[in-house]
């Protein structure tokens, strides 16, 4: 982009370009290869995975692993729960963030520095895990669906991102004009701010939604009933916890059979769990980039 093709490249620049391309190819392969391997292993037969015959493409293609995943009731419950927490949580998050960010972006909002200070201080210091847990317990939220969406109803970082967006895209004159025409502050939000903030709502929705879908910590500390578990907890129980129970010991043949089935299920489960985010990814990629940029403005 910077150079037009008519410019003469010196020899050192040519060498640099070649080395640079090789370097990036190397990075590309390092990132892509494990992903392709997992995908291929999920479609391969157990024996092929176990005996190490899978290198790049599926060997002896089969859908057995996926069948096992979809026949597992707890995985499906987890899927539904995660979906529920993600949708409800994200709606609450975006609503709260805009409510907080809009007044803080207004110059005529008396006391905005004080409130901003109250908000940002929470990013520097926190009471920590235990007092927060005791509070949630006292509020009676433990082991309810609300524990998954209320304690993290808003992130201050995203409030700052949204505030920066509002103060850079909606000029103060627009507020004044609205005021002169007798528009109330709340009317202004619904009639002018919301219609203008499509991009920021998209960014917030994506940040929050991915966060909800991928999080397991909240569920780990607040939920006890298996019926309420989100997918990530189920994944952890299947993928990680039974892995550590002495892989090298026990009867070899029995071991191999069970290990084989578990092994197959694991690869397909990894793929199934990542599908929602992977499907979204190509569409939302540019919004994420934009979100990072807006946040960086005030960095």
């Amino acid at each position: 982009m910077r150079k037009s093709s008519s410019i003469y490249y010196s020899r050192s620049d040519k060498i640099f370009a070649v080395v640079n391309t090789i370097f990036l190819l190397f990075i590309f392969i390092i990132v892509v290869y494990p992903l392709i391997y997992v995908l291929s292993a999920s479609f391969s037969s157990t024996q092929a995975v176990m005996s190490g015959r899978v290198w790049l493409l599926p060997v002896e293609p089969t859908l057995l692993g996926y069948k096992a995943v979809f026949n597992n009731r707890s995985i499906m419950t987890g899927y539904a729960n995660s979906f529920y927490y993600t949708v409800l949580g994200t709606v609450i998050n975006v609503f709260m963030t805009i409510l907080a960010a809009y007044p803080l972006a207004r110059k005529s909002f008396y006391g905005r520095n004080l409130i901003m200070g109250i908000f940002t201080f929470t990013m520097l210091f926190s009471g920590g895990l235990i007092p927060t847990y005791l509070l949630v317990k006292q509020l009676g939220l433990i082991n309810t669906r609300w524990a998954m969406v209320i304690p993290n109803a808003m992130s201050v970082w995203n409030v700052i991102v949204a505030r920066t967006f509002f103060s850079t895209t909606i000029p103060e004159e627009l507020y004044e004009a609205g005021e002169l025409d007798g528009c109330s502050d709340i009317g202004f939000i619904s009639k002018i701010v919301i219609p203008l903030s499509g991009p920021i709502i998209a960014v917030l929705t994506l940040f929050y939604a991915v966060g909800h879908w991928n999080s397991y910590f909240q569920a780990l500390i607040y939920l006890k009933d298996a019926e309420l578990f989100p997918l990530q907890i189920i994944l952890r129980n299947i993928l990680i916890q039974n892995e550590t129970s002495g892989e090298m010991m026990r009867d070899i043949s029995e071991m191999q059979r069970r290990q084989g089935m578990a092994e197959l299920l694991k690869y397909s489960l990894i793929v199934v769990a990542s599908i929602p985010v992977l499907i979204m990814y190509p569409f939302v990629q540019k919004y994420f980039v934009r979100g990072v940029m807006i946040g960086a403005l005030k960095g």
Binding site: N214, Y216, Q232, L235, L239, I240, E243, Y267, A273, V277
Partner: peptide, 13 residues
């Protein structure tokens, strides 16, 4: 965008 749980299980696999 890969979740921590999936990431760790990929590592372990």
């Amino acid at each position: 965008f890969i979740s921590t749980v999936v990431m760790v299980s990929i590592i372990m696999q």
